[in-house]
Write a protein that binds this DNA or RNA. Sequence first.
RNA 1: GGGCCAUUAGCUCAGUUGGUUAGAGCGCAUGCUUGAUAAGCAUGAGGUCCCUGGUUCGAGACCAGGAUGGCCCA
Length: 919
Amino acid sequence: MRRDYRATLNLPSTSFPMKADLPKREPDRVRWWREQHTFERRLAANAANTAWTLHDGPPYANGELHMGHFLNMVLKDMFVKIALLAGKHAPFVPGWDMHGLPIELETLKHLGIKDFHSIDPIALREACRERALYWLDRQRTVRTRMGNFGDWEHPYRTIDASFEATIVETLAELAERGQIYRGLRSTLWCVHDETALAEAEIEYEPKVSPAIYVRFPADPAQRAALRAAFGTAAEPDRPIAVVIWTTTPWTLPANAAIALRPDAVYGLYRVGDEEVVVAEALARTALGERCPGDPVARATGAQLDGLAVRHPFADRDAPIVLADYVDLETGTGAVHTAPGHGADDFETGMRYGLPVLNPVDASGRFTAEAGRYAGQFIFKANAAIVDDLRASGLLWSAADYEHSYPHCWRCHNPVIFRATAQWFIAMDQNLLRQRAIDAIDAVAYTPDWGRSRQVQMIETHPEWCISRQRTWGTPIPALICQACGDSFLDPRVARLAAKRFAEVGASAWWSDPVDVYVPAGLRCPSCGGASFAQERNIVDIWFESGVTHLAVLGKRGLPWPADLVVEGGDQYRGWFRSSLITGVAIKGHAPYKHVVKNGWVNDEQGRPMSKSRGTGIDANTAMERWGADVLRLWAASVEFVDDVRFGPTVVDQVGRVYRNLRNRIRFMLSNVADLDAAAIVPLPAMEPLDRLACAVADDLAAAVRAHYERFEIHDAYLRIVEFESALSSLYFDAMKDPLYSRAAGDPRRRSAQSALLHVLRRFLTAVAPVLSFTAEEAWQTLPEPLRAGAASIFDTAFVSPDMGERTAERALWQTLLELRARVAAGVTVRDFEARARLVAAHPLYDRLLELGDTLREALVLSQLDLVPAPAATTAPSLELAPAEGAKCARCWKYRSLGADPTYPDVCADCSAVLSALEA
RNA sequence: GGGCCAUUAGCUCAGUUGGUUAGAGCGCAUGCUUGAUAAGCAUGAGGUCCCUGGUUCGAGACCAGGAUGGCCCA
């Protein structure tokens, strides 16, 4: 008679489901964390310990969060949790960047208003505020849905009165230090939005422009001078012209010079009856079929410096000047220079004292200064200008030219350079630039090349234009003198504004009478006038986010500088840079100690995600589809410092890894379910193999912690996956026999359970920063008495750093894995059908001997003979033979059966268990 | 066009200062198990280490050039 002994075994049992159902269950956990105040409690518990702050770079409160946001935000959360589990006091104050043109434009669109001049500024600001708050709320919901910890009830917001006050206070301090000035500048200008733009607000897109070659003719005196410079004979009647190339004919009315490259060779070419000057290197492409081959004469740019030709249609000269930036790749090597319409041109104009002609108004129409083109829209005037040049015979050639051209980041219209009065931070005043570069020395960078990148970004930073002619932002508290029309930024005015804004918010600037901001005795620095009006400029939002460290860290009692900032690589030029500059300018130090850069999230082909290609997916949709924990595991599975790929294939793969990890957690949970706290076997009293498993788990946990604290999330992930796999295939498998077939309270079983509990706790704490939801779910499944007083997994702690490497244990573990593989290769594992003779040399023999019978357990054998090898050097040898005895119907090991006649088909151990169960 | 970064199995990634037959996980194939079972275990296949030159006794690693992709600029 064969009996089914299944019911007499201690089979695993747990309520922890195999199917995770993450999208459905995670929102409940988010709520639970909030209700339990898990983050706040842990923060309080760590209050007396080392302070550590990750300062949140503010996402822009507009639009849905995408997977790039997800990666960045989850990484931040991992770092915060790592610090918490290491016992640090690690507050996290999330923030939002809520002013600025994109929100203003979205709001205008929402309101159905095209021209922002047509709406009352206060009303527009109120509408923008609502819009920004809507997006903050939406993004906050998604950020918490990710499982991220933080002070979600009290985020910092750049629209808060206190924040606006900090912005203006910072302006006051900078003004006091002479760091701010007002100047005419050739500024990137959007004629559609009628505002100056920052570099960061520019996107390059292909554009077809009219590319024209234009003669700048020389008058008789100029001809003589040119021919003299070229060393050719005077020919008073032969026309001569310098040919320039431009893709912006509309800038010709503002031309003030022609720039040559000093070291380039220019040729004087005879074409028909005329002579033209172009760079020799470009003659063939510039002059086309009419190029005669060799020039009549040659001269370097430097030799032509100071000469002049005539403007093609205005009644003035175009002097020849020199500039190093003139390239010999396109054009003619003779560059049309309009200081009002180009950054380089502006610099050259300053050097040569050229007039800054600016015949274009804010909306892109020519002013009276443009003569016959007055009133025309510049891009439309291109055709008229080309026609006129053709009519006057000064057009050499014209063609369409497709090139990459700067466009407004919001309205996507082409932008122009236009000279306007703006407020600037002087980068070299008070050695600001150099001090910022020096401050970088004190900062750690991950990856390390980030340092040189950051230095480069400071070195190449142009004068920082901080003014915008828009409405949705913090006002620059400058006053306009009613008498002379000059604007000035007086620190005392700024202080008054800061105080006022702190109380009622910055919209007051638009509604208050000017007196509120005028200190007694204020006089216009230009004319001494005493009557003023508020200037209507707002601050660049990069400046606003650049002072988060002042508005948040100091004012919330958090340490300054921050220990860590984590953002995408675009922020070397953005927030890392703006924060660094304000930090150095105000406090003389970088506002952070360590900069970690995360990579870009591309699609599965490594291309940028795009909605139009269907590869774009927002973070919330992804979480609804796969669950936050699988995506968090994805974030850990990729090397986040580099650009990473994301898509269904990649997530499915990591989803399988997730299932493996989850099932291993489930195995441990299901085998400790019946363990009483009182029955827990302390580590020193455990069976040798159990102690070894605990040591391996500690080793794993220590390694994971070490990687975490070096921000090596991916390395931690590898250790988790590999070690856990090794633990499962060896230890879990081997423990099934003692766990299932021994009596429930058998010391051997209790030892194994205690070890599993130890491993489980270590494992859950180690994975909690990544698999926060699953770790917490498992922790809550664990019977309360087994949680060692920790209400949440986030109340537990990492292994102490001095746990040290368990090198010997790791080596022994490796040996066991190899031996077990040899057994498994020979016989069916878990059938216990073999006995083995294991011959090992010292000192391995001694280590194996210490394991006692648990060595047999580890190798899943019915019998094992361990024999010392004679020579010290031989590798262990393993000989398999059929096990002795017969297969026990209950425990499946081969033993001598039938000791108890009541149970003839089971071994003595099993019959004892059965008898006890019957009794 | 410039600067920076990346490129190792189908996928995600390891590969100390240059040194044997380049590793892991997932996937795939095959087998076992059916007492973790929409699980578990074992075995196996799979690589022109992006390409081309160079340095070297020896290069996945170092150097030069190039290709592809990405980011930031122009």
